[in-house]
Design a binder for these strands. Structure first.
Lengths: 172, 172
DNA sequence: GGCTTCTCCGACCTACGCGGTAGGATTAGG
DNA sequence: CCTAATCCTACCGCGTAGGTCGGAGAAGCC
C-alpha cells in the first residue's frame, strides 16, 4: 500500500474544513471548526487527528485559534490547495523506494537519486522505473485540488464509483 | 514508501535474466542462469531471492530447470514483459490505500472500490484522489518494458540520473 | 475568578509485516 | 553417489504504523 492513514485522515480533515470554507465573503468564512466536530463527522479518533492536523499547521495549510469556540480553518481557498503539497506535509517526501532520497530534503516534485549506484559496473536499472512511477504519482496529486474533492464529496452517493472512475480516466 | 524490496530485487533479477536473453536464436538463448550467479552479481541474499523468484515463476514470467547446471530463464521476450504484470506478481495488487479492494481479486488494472462508503451521508472524498494516483502508477508501470530497463542498465553510468529524469519526463 | 472548551505536546503502547535466516526435501548432471 | 541446483516451510527480530493517555497553555462565558 502506498499511503498511510495519515494521508487518508488528513485529506478527509481538509475536505471537512473546505466544506465550511464556502463563499462566506471575508477570508476564513464563519468561525473555525473544532477538531471534535470533525472527528465525530468523519468517525475518526480525536487524539490521532490532533497529531495529524499539527502536520498541516506546520506546513501552513491550516491555522488554529485556541480556547473555547476555537478550531481550525484553511489559510487559502480550496481551489488553491493542491494535493501534492498536502501529501508532502502529511507523509513526507513521496518516494517509491527506500533507496530514493531527495537531493537535499527536497519537496515531492524534487528530483530524486538512487543511493546504491556502485553495484557492479552497471547502475541499478530500477531507477528508471521508480522515477517514472514517482512522476505518475506526483502528477496525479498535483492535478487534484481540494476544491475538487469537496465538490466530489457533495455529490449524491449513488453513482460515485462510476464518476470516480470516469474522472480518473479523464486525467489519463 | 510505495514498493518493498520484493519489487526492487525482483526487477533487478529480471533485468539480469533479460541481459542473458539477448538475440541467441533459439527461444531461451543459452542455458538457464542460476540464482547464485544473480545473487553474486547484484549482491543480494540468495535465500531471499529464492522466495522472490518463486513469485515470478508462479506468475509464469519465468521458468526453471532443476538439478545441476539448472537455473531460470524468461518465458517471453523482454520487450513483451510489462512492469505492471511484474509488480503485480511481486507485490500483489497495487492499491494506494488499505480501503481499496479490487472488485474480485482483480489485477492491477482492475477497477477498485473503497470499502467505507457509508460514512455519514457523503461518501469518502479520498476515493477520487486515490483512484487518480493509482491510475498514474499503473500507467507508468504498464508503459515500461523489461527491454527498456535492460537497455538502460547497459548504458554508461555517468549521466544516468540525467537520462532517467529525461525519460521520465518523456512519459509525462 | 472559575468554569469549560479548545489547541498543544510528548511519552507510551501494541500488533503486524518487511526483510532475512535455517534447514531441509527434491531433482538432475558427472 | 556426490554435487549443484531448485523447491518448500517454519522461524525470527525489529521498525513502524496506528493509536492512547495525561497533562499543560489559551481563550471565551458565566
Amino acid at each position: 500500500m502506498i499511503f498511510t492513514t495519515k494521508a487518508e485522515y488528513g485529506v478527509r480533515l481538509l475536505v471537512e474544513l473546505g466544506r465550511q470554507h464556502d463563499g462566506a465573503g471575508a477570508p476564513g468564512g464563519r468561525g473555525p471548526t473544532s477538531l471534535k466536530a470533525i472527528a465525530e463527522a468523519e468517525e475518526l479518533p480525536l487524539a490521532y487527528l490532533e497529531r495529524i492536523v499539527a502536520l498541516l499547521k506546520k506546513a501552513g495549510l491550516v491555522e488554529a485559534t485556541r480556547g473555547a469556540h476555537g478550531g481550525y480553518r484553511l489559510t487559502r481557498q480550496p481551489a488553491e490547495i493542491h494535493m501534492d503539497e498536502v501529501v508532502l506535509a502529511l507523509e513526507g517526501v513521496v518516494a517509491p523506494m527506500t533507496c530514493f532520497v531527495a537531493e537535499d530534503g527536497a519537496p515531492v516534485s524534487g528530483r530524486v537519486v538512487c543511493n546504491h549506484e556502485a553495484d557492479s559496473g552497471h547502475g541499478c536499472a530500477t531507477k528508471l522505473l521508480w522515477t517514472r512511477v514517482q512522476g505518475g504519482v506526483v502528477k496525479a496529486l498535483a492535478q487534484t485540488t481540494l476544491a475538487e474533492l469537496v465538490a466530489f464529496s457533495n455529490r449524491p452517493q449513488q453513482h460515485q464509483t462510476a464518476t470516480a472512475v470516469r474522472d480518473a480516466a479523464a486525467v489519463a
